[in-house]
Design a protein around this nucleic acid. Structure first.
Length: 480
RNA sequence: GCUCCCUUCGUCUAGAGGCCCAGGACAUAGCCCUCUCAAGGCUGUAACACGGGUUCGAAUCCCGUAGGGAGCGCCA
């Protein structure tokens, strides 16, 4: 396991920053909706910054104007906000920095670290085809490297002049040293023939300008890293520290896709997950702290270190997420949960103004529901008198005998001196003893009459929360 | 094809040579608790990819093999 210390220092050429302080960034491209894979990368970057009192920057990499969408940008911004992954700077948009990229390209052209290439796409395609036929790695052969004169009428692309000898060592915080021979690297295009800069180049300029000290990204970028480091070096910068984190697989072990996992992160809000639970689940994918499974946000910040992240990809396990969500539901302060439950109540058309009732419901329901959506659904009868009576439950539990029994029980409840769970419990127990019935014979009919179904929190707690007036109203004969 | 990365229970992981005939968690099976559903408790099934080394001793170090993955774009 790599234990390299954070030595990278970005010497921003546009802005000057405190050299020893950590700066990380999350740089998604808005070509698809932000999903949990991206969120975990964001989380790791955010944690690394927060842990070390550094800065976290959000940067939208939208240089692919064809495929970038506003909807995707919105999901990134809204998703990060929902999750509480606040950034200290940004969001920056690469499309707003084109002038800067062009300026750097001009510098490189002048310095000779970049050059014009007039090869046509067809020509390049043919070159690659020949190389593939020879079982070689397809790569640009550098035929325009030393070209002196432009080709009339052909708008050139700009290529980076990659060193041909020696090697590049990526001191990766999670993988350890990774060595690449420069001979394996070809001259990549940094500006298209229409003048727009390409991804690998923009990243380099931005990371340098923004003073990024730790680049934390998916390990699908490992192969881009040596060239980015070469460009950074060519521009006179010291490359930052890199940490390539493994990807997240679907539950079936295959690449994350729609249907499982690769849905918008906002989908998890809709399904009733707590931000902290999702973050807790995600942080444990590739990272651990002994046997601890449950982490508060504060604990994650205090304990996380990018150097402790695993190298192997991990599969997304929805069941464990569900379990963790409930664990957080049970541990969080009810007032904190209330904030997130309200939207779900509202979606069901239920009132959200009774804070005391909402918090009571949370306490009563949290150990029997795994999501907020489920909790809201199971708690409808607390908020509305329009109770849905389950026909099967009514038929089974509200028999003639039971109905008669409830009439008497209603009187007992009406006569109670105090209306709280212990008093209600005592009354029901006494009543059951008198009738020589098991508690279940009383509780189930009562539960169906009051909630409409066979499942609810303990009956005494349920009635206490519902209140005397509503309880008695629901026990009115003919009501159910 | 070439380059690079990865490999402990079904899944997430602990494990930095003896504490490991491998621990925890989810899931799963059984039991307990019990007014429903849960939550909780206890118990069980279940893994070091394979082969060689090194060593008194290897899940841990080295070398191979196999299997997965990524990249090789005027995509990011």
């Amino acid at each position: 396991m790599a234990r390299v210390d954070a030595g990278g220092r970005g010497r921003g050429s546009a802005t000057i920053r405190a050299p020893m302080s950590i700066v990380t960034r999350f740089a998604p491209s808005p070509t698809g909706l932000l999903h949990i894979g991206g969120v975990r990368t964001a989380l790791f970057s955010w944690l690394q910054a927060r842990r070390h009192g550094g800065k976290f920057i959000l940067r939208i990499e939208d240089t692919d104007r064809e495929r970038s969408t506003d909807a995707a940008v919105r999901v990134i911004v809204d998703g990060m906000h929902w999750l509480g992954l606040d950034s200290d700077e940004g969001p920056y948009y690469q499309t707003q920095r084109f002038d800067r990229y062009r300026a750097v390209i001009r510098e490189m052209l002048a310095a000779g670290t970049a050059y014009h290439c007039y090869c046509s796409k067809e020509e390049l395609e043919q070159m690659r085809a020949e190389q593939t036929a020879r079982k070689e790695k397809p790569r640009y052969d550098g035929r325009c490297r030393d070209r002196q004169a432009p080709v009339a009428g052909v708008p050139p692309v700009v290529r980076f002049r990659n060193p041909t000898d020696g090697e590049v060592v990526v001191k990766d915080l999670v993988h350890g040293d990774i060595v690449f021979r420069n001979a394996e690297l070809d001259d990549l295009i940094i500006a298209r023939s229409d003048g727009t800069p390409t991804y690998n180049f923009c990243v380099v300029v931005d990371d340098a300008d923004m003073g990024i000290t730790h680049v934390i990204r998916g390990d699908d970028h490992i192969n881009n890293t040596p060239r980015q480091m070469n460009m950074l070096t060519a521009l006179g910068h010291v490359p930052p520290a890199y940490a390539h984190v493994p990807m997240i697989l679907g539950p079936d072990g295959a690449k994350l896709s729609k249907r499982h996992g690769a849905v918008s992160v906002l989908q998890y809000e809709e399904e009733g997950y707590l931000p902290d639970a999702l973050l807790n689940y995600l942080v444990r994918l590739g990272w651990s702290h002994g046997d601890q499974e449950i982490f508060t946000r504060e604990e994650m910040i205090a304990l996380f270190d990018i150097g402790d992240v695993n190298k192997a990809a991990s599969a997304f396990n929805p069941e464990k997420l569900l379990w963790l969500n409930q664990q957080h539901l049970m541990r969080a302060r009810p007032s904190a949960v209330a904030r997130y439950l309200k939207p779900h109540l509202a979606r069901l058309g239920l009132p959200t103004d009774n804070e005391a009732l909402i918090e009571g419901v949370i306490v009563a329901q949290r150990e029997r529901t795994k999501t907020l959506k489920e909790m809201a659904l199971a708690s409808r009868f607390f908020f509305t008198d329009a109770v849905d009576y389950d026909a099967k439950a009514v038929a089974k539990h509200l028999t003639a005998d039971a109905r008669a029994m409830l009439v008497t029980l209603r009187e007992r409840l009406a006569a109670l001196a105090t209306w709280d769970a212990p008093a209600i419990h005592a009354a029901i127990e006494t009543f059951a003893a008198e009738l020589a019935l098991g508690l279940g014979k009383i509780a189930q009919p009562l539960r169906v009459a009051v909630s409409g179904g066979t499942v609810s929190p303990p009956i005494d707690q349920t009635l206490a929360l519902l209140g005397r007036a509503r309880t008695l109203a629901r026990l009115e004969p003919g009501r159910y």
